[in-house]
Amino acid sequence: MSEMLTVLYAEDEADIRAVAELALEDEGFELIACASGQEALDRAATLAPDLILLDVMMPGMDGPTTMRALRALPHLADTPVIFMTAKVQPNEVAMYSSLGALGVISKPFDPMGLAEEIRTLMERVNDG
């Protein structure tokens, strides 16, 4: 998988955004990092990301709300979504999947392994 993947990313915590940027830069990802779900939604109008990466718990629009709003945009109707969250209950993963998410990356994540984790999840899309 050598082509550049554009990722629309929403995370309210600046520290975690910085870590994700570090972890994905030079790894074949172009990360468009937003500080809120609303910002992601605003920017999405002019973007065609290959993947949407959303923190679940954000003030204002939370991850699932942001996902629904993004999916309502015709050009993002089929864009895969991955949630990132501090996993609280095992059934949450199932819940997010039922919302139509491709998968969940649990926090805390290993910065050195994040790129790989995303690629593995993305392969599911490519495998059909």
Binding site: D15, I16, V19, M57, A86, V88, P108
Partner: peptide
Amino acid sequence: RLVHSLAGSAGTF
């Protein structure tokens, strides 16, 4: 939200 956020980030750091 504050506690959740700490739960998510402390490990990374």
